[in-house]
Design a protein around this nucleic acid. Structure first.
Lengths: 163, 163
DNA sequence: TCCTTATTGAAAATAGTTTCCATTTTCATT
DNA sequence: AATGAAAATGGAAACTATTTTCAATAAGGA
C-alpha cells in the first residue's frame, strides 16, 4: 500500500518489491531528484538536493541508493573523467531519451546530443555480432563519448590570443 | 648527449628536450616498462615493475611521469571503470596499433580487438562533422568501449548452473 | 666545473567512495 | 493494530587512488 509521502514515480514501489527490496524514503527522494533534474548529477549533488528537503538522509545512503538503482537498471552511471561518477535516469525509466555526451576537456562541460545515432546503431550491431562470434564475448553495454573543446572555451581562447 | 644508462626508446631524449623537459632515469624506466609490457597497466603495476629494477624510484614520480607522457601524447590513459587509470603506449610511439577494448563486467578482464574499425571510422567522421557544425564543438578525441561477459565468465556461470 | 632550475622522493593531504556497526524502519505475520 | 525478523539507515572511520608539499638532488647549459 503506497505511503502518504509517496511522491516519486508510482512504479518505484512495485519495482523495488518485485526485486525483494523495501520502499523507503531515501530511495524515493533520490529517484525524485533524478526525475526532476535532467542534468548529470554527482552523488554529492544528489545528496545536497535530497538533503535540502530531507536533512536526515545521509550521504552514505545516497551512495547506497544510487548503487541499488544502477544495479536495477533504473539509473545509469557515467564517468566523464573528472574523478566522480555522474548519474542520470535511464531512458526507459523516464529519463532523457537515448543520447551521447560531448565532454569539453577544458571546462568539463557536458553536452548531450542525440543526432547521428543511426550510424552508431549500425556500428553496434556489426561489432556486437562480430565480437560475440570471434571472442565469444557477450556485449551487454557500450560507452561512446567524444572529447574536445566547446564553443565557450574556443571563444575564450580567441579572446586570450587577441591580447 | 645520450646517457650510458639509456636503454629505452632512442627518441625519448630528443622528444623530452624538444619540449623543454629533462631526460631522467625515472622517465626512461617508466617508458621502458610500457614498451616491454603490452598490457593495460595501472600506475601501481608500473611502479612495481619499475621499482623491481630501480628501487629508488618512488610511486609519486611514476604518477608524475605518466602524467607527463600522457600530456606529450606518448602514452594513453584509459579508464575501465574499476577506479584506477590504466596506461598504454600510444600506437605512434611504438605501442599496439589502434584497437578498442572489450571489458568484462564480471571479472574485469580486458580484451583488445582491432576488427570492425572501418565502421567506427565512418561513425567518427559523420559525427565529428555534424557536431562541430551543430554545436561548434571541436572533437579531439573519442572513447568507444564495449562491456559484457567474457567467455570464461560465461563458462563459469554454466558450471554453476549445473550444480 | 658551476649554477640555475627542473625533478625527485617521502610524507602528508585530498577526494570520492565504501565499510562498520549500533540504531531505526519496513512489512509479512500475527 | 501489535510483533518481530530482516533490511535499511546514518555517522564515523576506513579505504583507495591520486595529488600536493617541501626539502634534497640531479640535469644540462654556461
Amino acid at each position: 500500500m503506497p505511503r502518504r509521502w509517496m511522491a516519486g514515480p508510482p512504479w518505484l514501489y512495485e519495482r523495488l518489491h518485485g526485486c525483494g527490496y523495501r520502499y523507503t524514503l531515501p530511495r524515493e527522494a533520490v529517484l525524485q531528484v533524478l526525475t526532476q533534474t535532467p542534468e548529470h548529477l554527482s552523488a554529492e549533488d544528489i545528496y545536497f538536493l535530497v538533503h535540502a528537503r530531507y536533512p536526515q538522509i545521509g550521504l552514505t545512503t545516497v551512495y547506497r541508493t544510487l548503487d541499488l538503482l544502477v544495479r536495477m537498471g533504473i539509473v545509469v552511471k557515467f564517468d566523464f573523467g573528472d574523478g566522480r561518477a555522474r548519474f542520470e535516469l535511464a531512458a526507459h525509466s523516464g529519463g532523457k531519451s537515448h543520447h551521447h555526451h560531448l565532454i569539453c576537456t577544458l571546462c568539463g562541460r557536458v553536452i548531450d546530443y542525440s543526432d547521428f545515432l543511426e550510424k552508431e546503431k549500425e556500428l553496434l550491431q556489426t561489432t556486437q555480432k562480430g565480437l560475440s562470434e570471434k571472442y565469444n564475448f557477450e556485449i551487454t553495454d557500450h560507452l561512446i563519448q567524444f572529447y574536445g573543446k566547446c564553443q565557450q572555451c574556443k571563444n575564450a581562447e580567441k579572446q586570450a590570443e587577441r591580447r
